[in-house]
Computed example of a mutant assay.
Amino acid sequence: MSDDATARAVSALREHGPMTRAELARRTGLPKSTVSGVTAALVASGAVHETGTAEPLGARRAGPGRGRPGTLLALDAGRGEVVGVEFGASHVRARVLDAGHGRGPGAVRRLPLAFGAADALDATLDLVRELTTRPGAAPLLGVGLALALGLGPALTPPPTRPRGMRQGWEELDLPARLADTLGVPVTADNDANCAARAELLWGAARPYEDFVLLKLHAGVGGAVVIDRTVRAGRRGGAGEFGHVPVDPRGPLCRCGGRGCLEVYAGVPAVLGALTVHPGGQPTPHEVLEGAAAGDPACRRALRDAGEATGQVAAWLCNALNPQAIVLTGALSGAGELLAGPVRDSVSRTALPLNADVDVVVGALGRDAGPLGAAAQTLASVPA
C-alpha cells in the first residue's frame, strides 16, 4: 500500500476525527478498495482502532437510503495529544485533545483584567506543563491558541481591541516563543473560528455542511463554515459580523462606525440596557438567571439583542444560504430566550428562499475555543 495513501488517511482522521471507511474514502478522494487496504494495515499495526458504529448526524447529511451505519475508525490516542488554549478578558483556559479526538482534562488560570502578553505566555506555559505531566499523558504533539487578536507575523490587536489589552502584544510573537520553549508546533486562530471548528466536530454544528457561527460575548465575532471547512478569508478577517451595521445612525461603536451589531448584542450592550434594573446593573450570570426566572427586563434585553442579531443573520443567510446559524458566547447561555428572537427576526427579514435556516445554540460552552484551537493544531501535525 502506498505511503501517500496511508498519509492521506491518517491526515484525514487527525483533521476530522473518527469516521467510517466510506467517509474516509470521500474525504481523501481515495478509491474504496485502497481505503480498505490502508485501514486494514493501520488497524493491524495498532495505529488505528475501530471505535463503534456511526450515529446519524441528521437527514441533511445522511440523505435517503444510507443503509446500515458503518464502523468508526479513530487514530490511537497514544500517538500523542495537543493542548488548546483560549485567552479571555481575565483568564487563560486550556483543554487536552488526543490524536483520536478524545477530549481530555482541562485547566484555567485567572489573571488580572486586561492582562498583557507576558502574562499570557507565563500562564500558557504553566497550563501546558501541568496538563502534559499528568499521569498517563501521551507525548505532546503541539499547542493551539484561540485569540481575539490579529493574526499577522506577530499577534497584533485590531483597532477594535480594548486599549487595556494591548500590553506587549505587538512586541511578543506568542506562537514563536511558545514553540521555542516547548519544542513543538504552535498554531493560532481567531477564537470564533476555533469555536466553529469545535462545534462542527463535537457540538451543535455536527449535522451541517454549511453554517455561520455568531459569538455573542464581550465583543461579537463570527465564523463562516462551507463544506465543513472554516473559511478565514484572504487575510483571516472573515466573520467580523459584530461590525455589520444594524442602524447606520445608531450608537457609536468602538470600531469608529455607528450602529454595529456589537453595540446592540454584545454583553456590555445587554448590561448597559439594564442600568434601570432594581439593585443596579446586574452581572452577565445574573441576567441569564433573571431571564430564566421570568424577569421581564432581563428577558427584554435578551430579546432586543436577539432581534438585532437576527437582522445580521438574515443578511448572512441572503449572502451565503447556510443550513444553520450557531449561537455561542456568554449570551448563548440564555438558550431559546435568545435563539427564539434570532429565529423570528431571520424569518421576518431574510428572503423566503433563505429563511428556513436552523438557529441552534452551541453545545460546548467555554470549551469550544480551546477544543477548536487544539483541533486545528492536531490537523496540521504531519502524518
Rank of each mutant, 00 (worst) to 15 (best):
G164C: 03
M165I: 02
R166S: 13
R166P: 05
G168Q: 08
G168T: 08
G168P: 06
G168R: 06
W169C: 07
E170G: 07
E171W: 05
E171M: 03
E171A: 15
D173E: 10
D173W: 02
L174V: 04
A176D: 08
R177S: 13
A179T: 06
D180I: 04
D180W: 13
L182K: 06
L182Y: 05
L182F: 09
G183N: 12
G183K: 12
G183Q: 11
P185L: 10
P185D: 08
P185V: 08
A188Q: 02
A188R: 02
D189R: 11
D189T: 13
D189W: 09
N190T: 02
D191N: 14
D191K: 05
A192S: 14
N193I: 03
A196Y: 02
A196I: 04
A198V: 12
E199M: 06
E199I: 08
E199G: 05
E199F: 09
L200E: 05
L201P: 00
L201Q: 09
G203Q: 14
A204L: 13
A205E: 12
A205N: 14
P207T: 09
P207H: 13
Y208F: 15
E209I: 08
E209Y: 15
E209T: 15
V212C: 11
L214V: 10
K215P: 00
K215V: 13
K215L: 11
K215G: 08
L216W: 07
H217G: 15
G219R: 08
V220E: 05
G221M: 01
G222Q: 03
G222S: 03
V224N: 00
V224R: 00
V225S: 01
I226L: 15
D227A: 14
D227H: 15
V230P: 04
R231T: 01
R231H: 04
G233C: 06
G236Y: 07
G236F: 07
G237Q: 02
G237Y: 03
A238I: 01
G239I: 02
E240Q: 04
F241N: 00
H243M: 01
V244F: 03
V244Q: 00
V244S: 01
D247A: 06
R249I: 00
R249T: 08
G250S: 10
P251D: 08
L252R: 15
R254V: 14
R254C: 03
C255V: 07
G257P: 02
C260Q: 01
L261K: 05
V263P: 14
V263S: 13
Y264R: 14
G266Y: 04
G266P: 11
G266K: 10
V267L: 14
P268I: 12
P268T: 13
A269D: 04
A269K: 04
A269V: 03
L271Q: 10
L271K: 07
A273H: 11
L274D: 04
L274K: 05
L274T: 07
V276R: 15
V276Q: 13
